[in-house]
C-alpha cells in the first residue's frame, strides 16, 4: 500500500478559499484515497483493451479509407493516399465479395435454424428428467470442447466428395444403402457447397444451445407448472402459455450468440475446404487472403470493418435491451 499512500500525500494541494480549507481538502483526499487504488488496479487492463481493441479498430478504419493495396506501400516505400469510401464501394460491387457475403448469409441462416432446432429438441427431451441424463448431456455437448480444426479434419473425411464405387465418408453410407441419389460433392458443390459446412457447425454447437435451453427450463419455478396443471392445462397448453414465454429470453441469447459466432466463421472452413475454395469463401477468409496472399491491406481492413459492422448490428440492440432489463 505504500506507493498508493505516497501518491495520495503528494497530490498537489489546491489553493482553497480561506473560510473552509480543511474540510474541502480532506474531502478531496478522501476521494483520492478511496478511488485511486481501484483505478490503478484496473488501468493496465484498460490500457491494453484501449490499445488492442479501440485503437486498432480506429486504425483499421483508417487503413480501409486508403489505397494501401500493395507491398511497397505497406513497407512505406510508396505513397499511401486517402480515397474515402472507394474500397467499400468497390467491394460491394465485386461479384467475388458478394459471393462471400451470400455464402455467409446462407451459412448463418442454416446454422441458426439447425442449432436452434436440435438444441431445443435435445433440451426438451432431457428436461423431463431422463435416467442417465448427465451422460447424454455430456455426449451431446462434447463437440464444443473440440477445436473446429480437429472437427474439420474428421468432417473433411466424412464429406469427402468422391461418388460411386470409390466413395468414402457419408457418400459411402449412401452408396451401400443404395441411396445413390443422395450422394453429392458436399463442400465442393459449386452452388450449395457452403451448406455442407453447416453440418459440422450444427454438430459442434447444438449441444451448447441445448445447455442454454436446459438452464432456461430449470430456471422456471416449479410453482408455475403446478399452478398451470391445477388450472387444468394440458401438456401442450403448459408449453404454449407457460414454458415458451419463459424461455424466450434464452432463445434470444442463443440466437445472438450463435449468430455472432457464425459471422466470424473461419477455422472450420479452413480445415474442411482450405483458403482457396471459391464454393465456401466467406469474409473472414477473404481477410486472410487479402493480408497474407495479396498484401492488400486496405481491402483486408475494409472487409474486417464490414464484419465488425455486421456484428454490431446484431449485438448492440441486444446489449441495450439486456441493460434495460437489468435496470428494471
Amino acid at each position: 500500500m505504500t506507493p498508493v499512500s505516497e501518491t495520495v500525500t503528494s497530490a498537489p494541494p489546491q489553493a482553497a478559499p480561506k473560510p473552509t480549507p480543511a474540510p474541502k481538502r480532506s474531502k478531496r483526499k478522501q476521494w483520492i484515497k478511496r478511488n485511486l487504488p481501484p483505478i490503478l488496479l484496473i488501468s493496465p487492463s484498460l490500457i491494453l483493451v484501449g490499445v488492442f481493441v479501440y485503437w486498432l479498430i480506429f486504425s483499421s478504419v483508417g487503413t480501409s479509407l486508403t489505397n494501401n493495396h500493395t507491398m511497397p506501400q505497406v513497407m512505406g516505400a510508396e505513397e499511401v493516399e486517402f480515397v474515402g469510401l472507394e474500397n467499400y464501394a468497390n467491394l460491394l460491387r465485386d461479384p467475388d465479395f458478394l459471393h462471400s457475403l451470400r455464402n455467409l448469409g446462407l451459412y448463418t441462416l442454416v446454422f441458426l435454424v439447425g442449432t436452434m432446432f436440435f438444441g431445443f429438441l435435445w433440451a426438451w427431451i432431457l428436461e423431463k428428467r431422463a435416467r442417465f441424463e448427465g451422460f447424454f448431456r455430456s455426449v451431446l455437448l462434447f463437440p464444443m470442447a473440440v477445436s473446429s480444426v480437429a472437427a474439420g479434419v474428421v468432417w473433411r473425411w466424412l464429406l469427402s466428395p468422391t461418388e460411386g464405387k470409390n466413395s468414402s465418408g457419408l457418400n459411402r453410407i449412401f452408396e451401400s444403402l443404395g441411396l445413390t441419389g443422395l450422394e453429392n460433392s458436399w463442400a465442393q458443390d459449386s452452388k450449395w457447397g457452403i451448406l455442407a459446412v453447416t453440418i459440422p457447425a450444427v454438430w459442434q454447437l447444438s449441444g451448447y444451445v441445448m445447455a442454454l435451453f436446459l438452464a432456461g427450463f430449470r430456471g422456471i419455478p416449479n410453482e408455475l407448472r403446478e399452478a398451470a396443471r391445477v388450472d387444468g392445462a394440458n401438456e401442450w397448453q403448459l408449453y404454449r402459455h407457460v414454458l415458451f414465454p419463459q424461455l424466450s429470453p434464452v432463445a434470444l441469447s442463443a440466437v445472438i450468440i450463435i449468430g455472432h459466432m457464425s459471422l466470424k466463421v473461419f477455422d472450420l472452413i479452413m480445415a474442411i475446404a482450405g483458403k482457396d475454395a471459391y464454393q465456401t469463401m466467406v469474409p473472414a477468409i477473404d481477410v486472410y487472403n487479402f493480408i497474407s496472399g495479396r498484401q492488400d491491406y486496405a481491402n483486408a481492413a475494409a472487409v474486417g470493418v464490414i464484419m465488425l459492422l455486421a456484428v454490431l448490428v446484431l449485438i448492440v440492440p441486444y446489449l441495450v435491451h439486456t441493460a434495460r432489463e437489468d435496470k428494471r
Binding site: L56, K264, F266, P283, I291, V305, M307, L308, V311
Partner: peptide
C-alpha cells in the same frame, strides 16, 4: 468499455495488429 472487446470479430483489428 472492457466488455465490448469480447464481441468484436478479430478480423476488424487484424491489419494493424499484424
Amino acid at each position: 468499455f472492457i466488455l465490448f472487446g469480447m464481441f468484436i470479430p478479430y478480423q476488424a483489428v487484424m491489419v494493424p495488429l499484424y
